[in-house]
């Protein structure tokens, strides 16, 4: 039986910086435990000699000519920004104690 505790849900939520309510935390712990329990069926499959599939395509490291092509203008790139200033995205201070 695989279980995901409420504390583990809180830990993962913090890894991905996602606010959950207490109700969501409890709900997800129960529901995802059931999903993981179902997923534990994979353990019965012998994969000791099997390579993982990350993509079904035979393509690897597709390259193109290193040529500059037009992209978005600054105004276009900033058009949807919640906050902007002087041609930049405006963000909160990243370092502790920053202004």
């Amino acid at each position: 039986m695989s279980t995901l505790s409420a504390d583990q849900v809180r830990y993962v939520a913090e890894l991905v910086k996602l606010a959950l309510t207490d109700e969501e935390t409890e709900l997800f712990a129960g529901q995802l435990s059931a999903v993981l329990d179902y997923a534990s069926a994979l353990e019965e499959v012998d994969t000791s000699r099997v390579a993982p599939t990350a993509t079904v395509l035979p393509l690897r490291s597709v390259m193109r000519e290193d040529k500059v092509e037009p992209g978005l203008s600054v105004d276009e790139a900033l058009a949807n920004a919640p906050e902007k200033q002087d041609g930049y995205f405006r963000v909160h201070a990243v370092l502790e104690g920053g202004q």
Binding site: V12, L18, L32, L36, A39, V45, T47, P52
Partner: peptide, 26 residues
Amino acid sequence: IILGAYALSAGYYDQYYLKAQKVRTL
């Protein structure tokens, strides 16, 4: 998001994510 991040997190990556990728091959 929680399920995916858990499957990728340290200690569970091999058990869940990598295992799933191998069964995907089969």
